[in-house]
Nucleic acid binder design. Structure first.
Lengths: 205, 205
DNA sequence: TAATTTTATTGATTCAGGTCAATGGATTTT
DNA sequence: AAAATCCATTGACCTGAATCAATAAAATTA
């Protein structure tokens, strides 16, 4: 056992989602897991390869993005306590379109595809876990789509400041711009607009 | 039993996803189901209410959409053999943002929320079904997002013609425009552009 | 601390698609 | 079949964001 400490957060996560999980079943789960520490800048998932792991972030920060016309488009950021993965590739076993890159020194606990399938077979409750993970991911991606479709970039940026200010602090602004789907220049101008009417910002929510 | 015929398609669907399903378990599933026939124009899901059913379309066609600034934005079309639902509302039990409207006379088989939760508890294999449905929906929404993010409206329209030509035939063009996220005028101009260079269209794919 | 690289800002220009408006087909209703 | 409604097309104009370009500021590295 490498660093039992690293599993503690994940174990409580599993336990919360699968209350019926016995200690023996947890041992079976734990046997599938691998802890990895990754330096800032490392690629956790390359484009064009099948995604073989779901990674639970113990500490650190990663981004998922893809290349369109050679330009990077960031789809999401994942920090400590969250799962990250190109789940589409993981599920379909097709090559990944997304890349995953470590933005800060990061520690992850990886669950391999085969190991997870084994858990689905051996532990009935694991299917509940799988269902809940897929459902959560689905809800998240729906919510994101709805926000993108309904809110202006300015509203979305304000919402980041209000609800996910750690993002603003931990990643450079051009990545925020990429995440919001605009150029760094455009986001800079939006900020300038917002700052010109400081009374408004106090009224948001 | 209302119209046993209506269940046949759904039963084979369930059987395919849950090979271990016994006849007794199927009976339990069937007991939860309700068949409904709906006239063109009917609302299958209203905005602001919690979505209580997953609906399997036996025949017909529906659209899901939401209102933004009073304008309709179509998110997807579902035809015979597909599930439709505001699955986000269904899962979270929060009011639905989406509306679902019947575009052709349609027959659906509805599975209520409570019934499905009961199945998850009573039939372990039902969690596999729930997992697979959530996974499929997740994959679909990812794929859609990737297409929207990467392909021009022209490419997306060509792709509809090549891969989902039934859509072009069964829904008016202004709905296609809404689905693609542009105005009817814009789509009309895109078609005009495409028709001006007919050699190109033969080369697509 | 100076040098270098990275990141953010601002200006000028361009362009795709939106909006507004008018017209002409299609389809449905009476 | 005539009237009315719905739908698609086309034109003129406008706007928001992309692009290109030049600095300025901030963060790293030497």
């Amino acid at each position: 056992m490498e660093t039992p400490l690293a599993y503690r957060q994940l174990k409580s996560y599993y336990k919360a989602l699968m209350p019926t999980l016995t200690e023996a079943e947890w041992q079976l789960c734990e046997g599938q897991l691998r802890v990895r520490t990754l330096k800032k800048g490392t690629m956790l998932q390359q484009q064009g390869t099948v995604c073989n792991y779901v990674s639970f972030v113990n500490y650190g920060l990663v981004r998922t993005y893809y290349l369109s016309d050679g330009k990077e488009k960031i789809t999401e950021f994942f920090k400590e306590g969250e799962y990250t993965c190109d789940y589409r590739s993981f599920l379909t076993r097709e090559p990944s379109i997304s890349l995953i890159q470590v933005l800060e020194d990061t520690e992850v606990v990886e669950t391999p595809y085969d190991g997870l399938q084994m858990l689905y077979r051996e532990i009935p409750a694991a299917n509940i876990l799988g269902r809940l993970i897929a459902e959560k991911l689905f809800i998240d991606v729906c919510t994101r789509s709805e926000v993108q479709a309904n809110d202006s970039i300015e509203q979305q940026y304000q919402s980041l400041i209000n609800n996910r200010s750690w993002l603003i602090q931990r990643v450079p602004q051009y990545m925020i711009a990429s995440y919001l789907g605009v150029t760094p220049e455009a986001l800079s101008r939006i900020k300038a607009r917002v700052n010109k009417r400081p009374l408004q910002s106090a009224l948001v929510y």
